[in-house]
Design a protein around this nucleic acid. Structure first.
Length: 531
RNA sequence: GGCGCUAUCGUCUAGGGGUUAGGACGGAAGAUUCUCAAUCUUCAAACCCGGGUUCGAUUCCCGGUAGCGCUACCA
């Protein structure tokens, strides 16, 4: 049933009898570093009788946060219901699709680390689409439109604005239509939408409920372009039928398109899937997210690079337009998988509350996303968090090993919101030489430079012999404060600044323990020199 | 313009014919350990407008308004 074929430089498998079910071999699913690198090429699993859902991005840019959410909801639905997740690249728009975009989408999905079960590329299934279109034509439910392609935008600038069909062209006789086609005259194939019959197109949406629309309000949309390429509507439906998609979960911007799709499903004799439309993600100004207007904040990789944990990002996206209805906010992937249901999906658009003119990188994100990320960071076991922080620190150029990272991690865990924050919170533990700081910082509350100097000199002498562990350090330094006749805080602050280069830092004893005697004494010495 | 969808604190949301309209983020104030963070407590903050149905509507219905979407040989 399966044979190898070659499309471009990609090795693919195709179904012999139709040549339309094409599976790719190059995707993050396979590249995944997870386990064995030679995962067999995926095939349609006919033994799984659960729901089949698909994520169908069109590769015209990077992976958008809205698309990511759609992917996540589909994935959650499939996993929740023991179904199958299909990834389909809807790349029928040759003009706008780029390979870089395909890579970029894979890059985003790879970070999310949610796997799909089957993968298809629409441009390799053109024969199926065309076959479907011509079947509809043969049934008399589509017609050739020989009108030259027009620039649609101009057309609708007129005040009546309503284009439904070009009068006359629908009524062209089959004979004449065939003759002109045979003569090589270019044409688009259009769906013959029922007119003047009072017919209603209806479907039931899992989120928006019963939907109905007068057929005569639907325009005669194109199925095939004059170059023979299928349009999105046709390709999407033909593929959904062929791939036996049972649930179409997608953005609400397709809600009105669905009436056309129902028409195609019925004309093609396919089973109409269950639809569930998702409320759109919009910018704080209420407009649709766009890269041009809103910048990198709409790209998934921006979140990755800023230090979001994928599970926190997923958690955040899930909360936009969906609710478990039990006041839960922070949820693990497992919990999401258990709690997710289409009933919990909201109907109103959700604002993703980022700062329009991105001030500091940290402030540009939706505060809730940042908070959730911090929650997920704190929920991680130390070893796990340490393992995630290590590459961040290493990529920043610090020659640190896993053992050192594990010691530093407890000090930063409650002080970072994004993983990248480790670089600013633990900076003094990563460098040999502290960056310059203001000596005035060394002066304790209600004290003066002389007191700072006495504190540091005292510290220098006691720390030379004390064991560098939390409890002994605690004891010795408190005793020292008493000897000097000052408060513990007045004792700790100059040391903290001497060692960390700033006033706000992790607790002192733990810090000294991690830093070690040698560096501590050097830094105290340097601080004394500044006074 | 036509068609469709939506409307609860600043934001994400719960709720639903009678509630002090709940939670979370963010904001403010306070408690707390050596600073910071974390944690805890408290406070401010919402049912778009107008009709109708009803003993009673934020909730149900209609209208308005606003926002969004579709209206391409884009997806």
């Amino acid at each position: 049933m399966w044979k190898e074929a070659t499309f471009g430089n990609r090795r693919v498998l195709e179904r012999e009898w139709r040549g339309c079910l094409t599976l790719l071999s190059a995707s993050p699913y396979h590249e995944s570093s997870m386990s064995n690198s030679s995962i067999p090429i995926k095939k349609e699993d006919l033994s799984n009788s659960g729901p089949r859902v698909r994520f169908a991005p069109s590769p015209t840019g990077f992976l958008h946060v809205g698309s990511a959410r759609t992917f996540i909801f589909n994935w959650l639905y499939a996993r929740r219901n023991a179904g199958t997740m299909v990834l389909r690249l809807d790349d029928t728009d040759v003009e706008r699709n780029t390979d870089a975009s395909v890579q970029s989408i894979f890059e985003g999905l790879k970070w999310l680390d949610l796997r799909w079960d089957e993968e298809y590329k629409q441009s390799e299934r053109l024969t199926l689409h065309q076959k479907t279109a011509w079947e509809i034509f043969e049934k008399g439910m589509a017609y050739r439109d020989f009108t030259p392609a027009h620039t649609g935008e101009v057309e609708k600038s007129g005040t009546q604005g309503t284009w439904l069909f070009n009068p006359g062209v629908r009524e062209l006789s089959r004979d004449e239509s065939d003759r002109r086609a045979a003569a090589g005259e270019p044409f688009a194939l259009r769906f013959r939408v029922p007119r003047d019959t009072g017919e209603e197109v209806r479907f039931s949406d899992a989120v928006y409920g019963e939907q109905r629309k007068l057929a005569e309000d639907i325009e005669d949309f194109a199925l095939l372009r004059s170059d023979g390429m299928p349009t999105y509507h046709l390709a999407s439906c033909a593929d959904d039928i062929d791939l036996r998609i049972t649930h179409v979960i997608r953005g609400q911007d397709h809600l009105t398109n669905t009436f056309k799709h129902v028409l195609i499903f019925e004309a093609a004799g396919g089973k109409t899937p269950q639809f569930a439309h998702l409320p759109l993600l919009v910018a704080p100004d209420g407009t649709k997210l766009s890269k041009r207007r809103h910048g990198p904040i709409v790209s998934v990789t921006t979140y990755r690079d800023a230090g979001f944990l994928p599970e926190a990002f997923i958690n955040f996206l899930c909360l936009l337009g969906w609710s478990p209805k039990n006041d839960r906010e922070q949820m693990s992937l497992e919990e999401l998988k258990e709690l997710f249901s289409l009933e919990g999906i909201n109907r109103a658009n959700a604002v993703i509350n980022f700062k329009e003119p991105a001030s500091t990188p940290e402030e540009m994100f939706d505060p809730k996303a940042v908070w959730l990320n911090a929650e997920h960071i704190r929920a991680l076991p130390i070893e796990e968090l340490s393992a995630r922080l290590l590459p961040v620190v290493q990529q920043a150029g610090y020659p640190i090993d896993a053992a050192q990272m594990l010691k530093i991690t407890p000090l930063v865990r409650e002080r970072i919101q994004l993983t990248r924050d480790v670089l600013t919170v633990a900076d003094f533990l990563l460098v040999n030489q502290l960056p310059p700081y203001d000596p005035a910082e060394l002066v304790p509350q209600k004290g003066d430079a002389a007191m700072a100097k006495r504190v540091l000199e005292k510290a220098r002498s006691v720390l030379a012999t004390t064991e560098f562990k939390h409890d002994p350090l605690d004891q010795v330094l408190r005793a020292a404060a008493q000897e000097l006749g000052i408060k513990a805080g007045q004792m700790f602050q100059p040391i903290r600044v001497a060692v960390c280069g700033r006033k706000n830092a992790p607790p002192l004893f733990e810090t000294l323990e991690v830093l070690g005697r040698e560096k501590t004494l050097v830094r105290i010495e340097q601080a004394i020199g500044k006074l």
